[in-house]
C-alpha cells in the first residue's frame, strides 16, 4: 500500500494540490489537505480500482477541503463578521438612505478571447483576495460546492440569517470589485 500511495503522490499530487488550492486559496492549507488525503488513503481499503485513483483521491480530498473551509470561517467569532453596522469596509455603501442604488450595477460579461479571459480570471482572483477571508471562505463553500444553505448553517453552527448576510456581503463586494477592476481597466 505504501508503494501505491507514493505512486499516487507522484502521479496525482500536483493535481490534488491544485484542486485544494483553487478552493482554499491558501498554499499551506492546500498542502495540508493533500497530505491528510494521502494519509487517509493508506488507512482506507475502499479503493477497488473500479474508479480511477484520481477520482477516488479527489473524493477524499473534497471532505478535507470542506473541513478546512469550516475552520477558515470559524477562526473568528461569527458575530464580528455579520455586524452590518460595522463600517470597517465600504462594502455596505451601495445604497442611499431611501434604498436606491448609489451606483447602478453595470453589465458584466465574460470576455470572448482567451487572453482577455486570462486577464479577467486574474482580476477575479485578486478580488477574492480582497474580500475579508471569512466571507471569501463562505462564498467558496456555498457557491462552489453547491452546499445547501441549511448544511452550511448546521456545519458552522450559525443561523441561516447570518449565512445569508455573509453571502450577500461577499457577493456585493465581489461584483463591485469586478466592476471597478474589470470594467474600468
Amino acid at each position: 500500500m505504501t508503494k501505491n500511495v507514493n505512486d499516487w503522490l507522484t502521479e496525482h499530487g500536483d493535481y490534488l494540490y491544485r484542486f485544494a488550492l483553487a478552493r482554499l486559496r491558501d498554499p499551506h492549507q492546500a498542502e495540508d489537505a493533500v497530505q491528510e488525503t494521502m494519509l487517509a488513503a493508506i488507512k482506507s481499503n475502499s479503493f477497488e480500482g473500479a474508479s480511477s485513483a484520481r477520482t477516488w483521491l479527489t473524493g477524499i480530498l473534497k471532505h478535507k477541503v470542506i473541513d478546512l473551509q469550516r475552520k477558515q470561517i470559524r477562526e473568528q467569532p461569527i458575530s464580528d463578521l455579520v455586524d452590518l453596522e460595522s463600517s470597517d469596509t465600504s462594502m455596505d455603501d451601495f445604497f442611499d438612505a431611501s434604498g436606491h442604488w448609489l451606483e447602478k450595477p453595470q453589465t458584466l460579461e465574460m470576455p470572448e478571447n482567451a487572453l482577455q479571459q486570462k486577464q479577467f480570471l486574474s482580476i477575479l482572483n485578486s478580488c477574492l483576495d480582497k474580500l475579508p477571508s471569512k466571507l471569501a471562505a463562505i462564498f467558496m463553500m456555498r457557491d462552489v460546492h453547491e452546499t445547501e444553505n441549511d448544511n452550511i448553517c448546521k456545519e458552522l453552527n450559525i443561523s441561516t440569517t447570518n449565512a445569508w448576510v455573509m453571502l450577500y456581503r461577499a457577493r456585493m463586494g465581489l461584483r463591485k470589485c469586478l466592476e471597478i477592476q474589470w470594467l474600468a481597466r
Partner: peptide
C-alpha cells in the same frame, strides 16, 4: 445577472486553477 454570472465566473477560475 451579475450574481448568476459571478457563480459561473468563479467556477471558471477554479477550473483554470485545477
Amino acid at each position: 445577472q451579475q450574481l448568476h454570472w459571478l457563480n459561473t465566473a468563479v467556477k471558471r477560475l477554479i477550473q483554470a486553477t485545477e
